[in-house]
Design a protein around this nucleic acid. Structure first.
Lengths: 220, 220
DNA sequence: ACCAGGGTGATTGTCGCCAAAAACGTTGGC
DNA sequence: GCCAACGTTTTTGGCGACAATCACCCTGGT
């Protein structure tokens, strides 16, 4: 059984998977404004999938907290308030703390090298004044930490939480002076993890997230 | 538009909501064995809803991590390994720690009274050797703590995580001697929260969860 | 000129049908 | 007597169509 437009050239994915990936991507890249109404028929011809797939994809993203549904009024991009963003960051704070602690306990020599490389690149990005590169490296390093920690449950929760506040995060990363203060915190985390000091790593990571929360709070 | 059997007497819920609630309940109460295959038609006549509703409900529970789907082989209750249960409890540990800390910062006099009452009832349940009553009070007290903390994001995450390991938790709560060691930990949490000592509350809660993890680990 | 009411178009939610795939039972061969 | 291959049955996945609801506009009355 094939979809109308036969999207098998895209890969082995079925319509639902394709649609949910494209939708998630669109939200994260900010192609759909928060509060904007999503018309199913529009997405159908945009993604070239059936309406069933679009519908299933929306359901999935509603479950992830990215969209919200109102009965007979369709789905809209969920707008997350500042207070909610803070709540989410508080959860991330303790979960990332867990990740950092476990990473410190499991870190290998190759892991340490990789982390050191990230630390150097982050420093270079700040020195050269490249906020976008810094932000991207930042995410990569956090991902590396999650990988080292080997805590897939926490990693998945963090990923889900992060997706809900990409807008706030992005806005924050562009604030002048922000990378400078963030860099030191990141380096502290990396050092503690490499040293295998789990409590210090957790503390450093939580301090970092506290700093992010404070910055977001003040930005209003 | 009404469902075939018209289940409006149940309440204003639509078929999907009804089905997902009943399904969740069935999983938590252990009415469906882990790994057991779920036949959609069976659930249709069991809940008196349409197949679309059953299907949507299953999707929802898959997103929550309670079920897993295999293509063309339907949905089965997800079996969570011991290692996964430990991961989940580690996440709960830090999240409940956050809850405890925030509760300590926000606790009011009425809240304190309520917590004190729970502490007394828990002590009584242990003294009288009523493990079921203890377990039930335990959950109620944790819920009260979540309410006091006012961190709905963390509360929701904890609820979702908990649902995935109800089986392990239940098995654990029946172990002889378990309530005795658990009680002291709970009382420590309550005391710290009432005292408004956030760091102590977080520490006490994390110690408690560490104890749960250790107990589960040893039980195999 | 403005508000109320009704009607029309657009959009979502639900249901039934059909095809694909897997589980099952049966039969034939070795 | 046992295993394999085939056909049947059961179950899932997907698609189209219909019904219900909402948003918008248009008209008529005050």
């Amino acid at each position: 059984m094939r979809s109308v437009a036969d999207n098998s050239e895209v890969g082995g994915k079925d319509g639902k998977t394709l649609a949910s990936e494209r939708l998630r991507e669109a939200v994260i890249r900010g192609e759909v404004a928060p509060g904007q109404r999503l018309v199913e028929a529009e997405l159908v011809e945009r993604f070239r999938v059936t309406r069933s797939s679009v519908r299933a994809a929306i359901d999935e993203l509603v479950a992830e907290g990215l969209f919200e549904r109102v009965h007979h009024r369709g789905a809209r991009v969920r707008t997350v308030s500042l207070a909610q963003a803070v709540e989410i960051l508080e959860c991330r704070k303790v979960l990332e703390g867990l990740i950092a602690a476990k990473a410190a306990r499991r870190v290998s020599v190759t892991d340490a090298k990789r982390l050191r490389a990230y630390a150097d690149e982050l420093t270079a990005a700040v020195r050269d004044g490249e906020p976008l590169r810094y932000s991207s490296l930042n995410h990569e390093m956090h991902a590396a930490l999650r990988e080292i920690a080997g805590q897939s449950t926490a990693a998945e929760l963090i990923g889900r939480l992060n997706a809900q506040i990409v807008r706030h995060q992005f806005q924050l990363s562009l604030r002048p002076g922000r990378p400078q203060v963030s860099l030191g915190e990141h380096l502290a985390v990396v050092e503690a993890v490499i040293a295998g000091d789990a409590p210090a790593a957790e503390r450093a990571m939580r301090d970092h997230l506290d700093s992010v929360i404070a910055a977001l709070d003040s930005s209003g």
